[in-house]
Design a protein around this nucleic acid. Structure first.
Lengths: 236, 236
DNA sequence: CAAAAAGCATGACAATTGTCATTTTTTCAG
DNA sequence: CTGAAAAAATGACAATTGTCATGCTTTTTG
């Protein structure tokens, strides 16, 4: 647990639902929230647990994944700095339907549901922000459903690489915005795209032969994003 | 267009977000809403259009489907009597990401977004109901993503039949609640499950040989739901 | 009610993808 | 920095699924 994180000075707060709070409410938030450091690979909450609040990601990267068939996991989405964890389950009044696991050392702030609901009742902007977020997630989920249902693995992998690049290397992002690279295990990639690890490895080799990507150990560097769009069968 | 539908007497209203309105607001709703009859196969809104309000389904069945690869459609969900159409797009302030098409003759009431937002601001229950609805849709979408990513077509089809049966034949539902049957084209089934029509046809023959289902023309009758659960690889 | 259209069924074959086994390489922790 | 553990790579083969072509049946509609 960390004592010295002050939301008032939090550099990701402007990109969260809590960007505009009155001083008194900000003080309450600072007093209530509990910040915790998680090491790489640690799990913040597990599928099946009942939420008692929400988590706001101060630093790090999180994967949200469901238990699938025979213990194989399905990665549903990622959360980056400034993002909320567990909001869908809390708002829907349901158990977590997926677990949240860190991809790297991360700092997470827990906000009690009582505090959160009090704030969201007082600030319509918070409710609105949460509603917009969940609507976006649903739209993305439906797009992904369509890809999974209709595209071949090769197309889905190309698409997945492009989506991950957009997500992890966006200009305002946390990392060197210039290099278009992705660092994930091939197993995680397989669990995003919905295929076997071996298939991902083989297809990545193909992509490499076709000069679409390059690899350095685990790291995948996108060389030809237009080419990837074509192989992803993404029209524009 | 229909003139004589009165929300105050609407027999599905109790199952909608508008179950409790003051008389004055109910009067306004009756005045504002526009009811339209759509014939089987007609489309209420198209993917890509900007929503200007929401639709409430008074009577009938609607499929919500996205344009996928090479014009193949992906059925994202169904809406039954009392359900809302286009709510995700309206709340998210985005274009429709899917189209809504009737599966049978249907009566749909259109509510202007101004009226809807006015009501939802006045009645927190409406906002809450909408939030819960969208959270449920997201949870379902993520489950479906996992199935599409991890299960074989055979398992997905068995699962799909069970889900459709739950949906269309629920006890309080509109149809003979006793017969567990599904009436959809094999193409629609393929577009739910994410496969080719021929594969659905072949697998349905297999299921018939295995006494899991029976068919009468287009109609599919579920004979052995426990057996279907097993072949769907659904544990409980 | 009958014609036209839409949907269903089936066969043959090819392409895609999964599985398992083994070796090599990279990553991580002490 | 180094050794153990995890991940990546590769081969061989089998199973699943998609595609195309064709004929038959059911459904729809005037």
């Amino acid at each position: 647990m960390l004592q010295d994180l002050d939301c008032r000075k939090c550099f990701v707060r402007s990109s969260t639902c809590f960007s505009d709070l009155l001083t008194e409410d900000m003080d309450e938030l600072v007093g209530q929230k509990i910040s915790t450091v998680y090491k790489k690979g640690q799990t913040i909450f597990y599928e099946g647990m009942m939420p008692t609040g929400i988590y706001c990601l101060h630093k790090g990267k999180i994967k949200i994944a469901k238990r699938g068939i025979d213990g194989k996991e399905q990665i549903v989405r990622f959360v980056l700095e400034g993002g909320l964890l567990g909001i869908r389950s809390l708002m829907g009044g349901r158990k977590y339907s997926a677990s949240a696991t860190t991809l790297e050392e991360s700092v997470v702030c827990y906000i009690d549901k009582k505090t959160f609901f009090k704030l969201s009742t007082k600030y319509p902007d918070i409710s609105h922000c949460v509603m917009t977020l969940i609507c976006t997630l649903l739209e993305e989920a439906e797009m992904k459903m369509t890809s999974l249902a209709q595209k071949h693995v090769r197309e889905r992998l190309a698409e997945g690489l492009l989506v991950l690049d957009e997500l992890f290397n966006k200009p305002g992002g946390c990392r060197a915005g210039d290099e278009h690279s992705i660092v994930l295990t091939r197993e995680d990639l397989a669990n995003i795209v919905g295929t076997a690890t071996e298939t991902v490895i083989r297809l990545l080799s193909d992509f490499k032969d076709e000069k679409l990507i390059d690899t350095e150990g685990r790291k995948i560097i996108l060389l030809d994003r237009e080419g990837l769009k074509k192989t992803a069968n993404n029209l524009p």
